[in-house]
Design a protein around this nucleic acid. Sequence first.
DNA 1: ACGGGTGTCACG
DNA 2: TCGTGACAC
Length: 657
Amino acid sequence: RRWRRMPVARPEPSDARVIAHVDMDCFYVQVEQRERPELRGLPTAVVQYNSWKGGGLIAVSYEARKYGVKRSMRGDEAKKVCPQIQLVQVPVARGKADLNLYRNAGSEVVSILSRKGRCERASIDEVYLDLTDAVETMLSENPAETLEAVDDEVLKSHVLGPDEDERKEVENVREWFCRSSAEHRDKLLACGAIIVADLRMQVLKETQFTCSAGIAHNKMLAKLASGMNKPAQQTVVPFSSVKGLLASLPIKKMKQLGGKLGNSLQSDLGVNTVGDLLQFPEEKLQERYGINTGAWLWNISRGISGDEVEGRTLPKSHGCGKNFPGPQALRTITSVQGWLNDLCEELSERLQSDFDQNKRVAHTLTLHARAYKSDDSDSQRKFPSKSCPLRYGTAKIQEDALKLFNSALRDFLGSHRGETQGNLNNGWGVTALSVSASKILAAPPGTGSILRFFHSCEPSSSSSKQNFSNIVQDSIPLSPSGSVSSSGLNLAEPQQISSAEEAKINCGSPTLNRDYQKRENSKYKGGCSILGFLQDSKPSCSSSKRECAEIAQEALPVPSSGIEDCTEQNPGLPLKRSPEEVNRVSPPSLDHNQQRREMWTYKVDEIDPSVIDELPPEIQEEVRGWLRPPKRANPVKRVTLFTQCDARRSRPLFKFE
DNA sequence: ACGGGTGTCACG
DNA sequence: TCGTGACAC
C-alpha cells in the first residue's frame, strides 16, 4: 500500500514562529445573512439544488446546529429536526451552483487579514498567517505598554493549559503575559493573539463576518486550535501545552488523518490518539507508510510541523464542474457538449475577472469527468483527465474542452468494439464533468491592453447568436500536425461518435431547461470570438486581419493551441523566431521551459513602463524582475501597433518585428 | 442515486 | 510532464 499525498516532513525552523489559522464561522451562512439581515440570529442553512429531498446542506448556522442540524443532511431532514430552519439556496447560474458570491466574500476577508504578515489563502474561508515579524517588532518596540494600551476586547483568548485533562484556560492574555513564569515563546504567542484579535475585529467591522482563530508555533497546531472554540473566539496553544493536547487527541482530528491513512493507523497499528503514535519509532512508521509519510507522522505526534505559510492570497487554479448522478447521467455527445459549453463559459468569465483583478493568465486547460460503462462489469470505470494549452476566449475554451472530452472518451471506451454512432452509445454515461484552468502566472506587462484591444473589436453581447466566428472555426480542417497537442495527445475528434452532431451545432436555439439531450445543443455562442477568429485566420482573410492575427499570436501570453496551430496557415509571416532574434521575457523560474519561452515574445526595452504600474504590488515585483538587464537585440524591422481603444495612452505599447 | 463544487498537493 | 489519487471544507 502506498501512501500518497501526505505532506513531506520538514524540519521545524530553529526560531519560534507565530502562526495563526483563521477560520470563518459557517461562512456561507454568514454571507447569506449579510445579504438578508432578517435571517440574522435565526437557525439557517445554505442548501444547493433543493428540488431533490430539499437539497444538500453545505453550511449550517450555530443556531441550527443546536437542533442537531448537520452538514450533509438533506433540506428535508433538516426541516424535520428543526421545522423553523431557514433554508437559503446557493445561487444557480447556467444550471449549476454558482459560488462566486462566497468566493468574493472570501477575498474581502483575505484583503483584511493580509495586512499583517504573510498570508496564505488555504481555502475559500480559511487563512494562515505568519505573524512572527509583526510580533517581533511589536515586542521590541514597546514591551509592556502595548498591553496597557490594548482594548480589553482584544485580550480575550482561550489559552490552553499544560494539563492533559484539566483544560485550565486563561481568558485574559494580559494576565497570562505578565505572569511570572512566562517564557519568551509564550510572550510571542500572546502578542500574536493580540494581533489576531485585532484583525478579527477589523474583519467584523468591515465585512460583518465573524471568524475563529488559533494561534500557535506552527500551522498544524494553529489549525487545530482554531476549531476548538467556535464561533467567534480564538485559542492559543503555548508550547508547554502541546504534549498534553496531543496525548489525548483522537488521531482523526488531525488534518490529513481524517481519511484512509487515519483509518489505517487505527485498525493496523491500534493508534487511536496522536499520543499513541509516540511509541512507534520513526523507522517503523517509515517502513509501513514510506519514508516521507513515516517521518511526517513521527513529527506530528510531537507537534512538529515545519510547513511554511506560503505568501499566496490568490488561488492557483480555477475549476467549474457538475455532477450528473444516476439517471441524470449524460449519454450523448450533444448533451455533454451543452454542459461543457456552460462550464467553459463560467470558467472563461472567471479567468477574465482574474485577469482584470490580478493581471494573471492561465496556461493549461484540463478536463475531468467521471463515467460509467454498463456493458462492462466495472461500472464506474476510470475516465482519464486530459489537458492542453489554454487559449483565451470562451469559444476557444469550449472547443478545446470538447476535443479533450472526445479524446478522453475514446480512451475510456478503449479499442473496444464501440460502434458508437450518432447519439446512441455503448452504454456509457457521464456522471460528472469539470473543466479547470491552471498554471496561472502573472501576465506579461501590456497583456491587458492587448486583450482590451481585441475586446473592443468584439460584439458587446455574448449571448446573441454570434455564430460567425464559430462557422469560421468549425470549417477549419485540422492540419495533420495541428491535431496533435504539445502534450502529445491526439485530440482529433472520433469521427464515428460526433460528426453527426457536430454538423448540427449551430442550428440550435436556446432552451430554458438545459435539457441538452432532448433538444439539440442550445448554446454554442461566440465568446471572445474576434480573438478566436484572428487566431484562426486562414490565408483567405484580409491582410490586415492577418496582421492582427500575428499580433495576437505574438503578443498574448497565451499559447496558440497545440490542437490547431494556425501559424502554419499563415505562410510568409514571421511567426516563428529563434530565441536569438529577440529578447524573450519570461519568469526566471520558468527559464527551463522551452515551450513557454516561445510564447512570450516581448522586446524587453520596448515595454511601456507605465503598464507595470497597473499591476498588483505582488506581481509588480515579479515583473520588474524579468525586466532587468535587457540585452540588445539585433536591429530588425518592426510593425507598430497603436491601441486605438486605449484612450489614455498616446504612445505605442508594443512594437513587433 | 449522490454532500456538491472546488481547491491543493505528492507521487510515479 | 502529465495524470492520478487523496484529502479538505
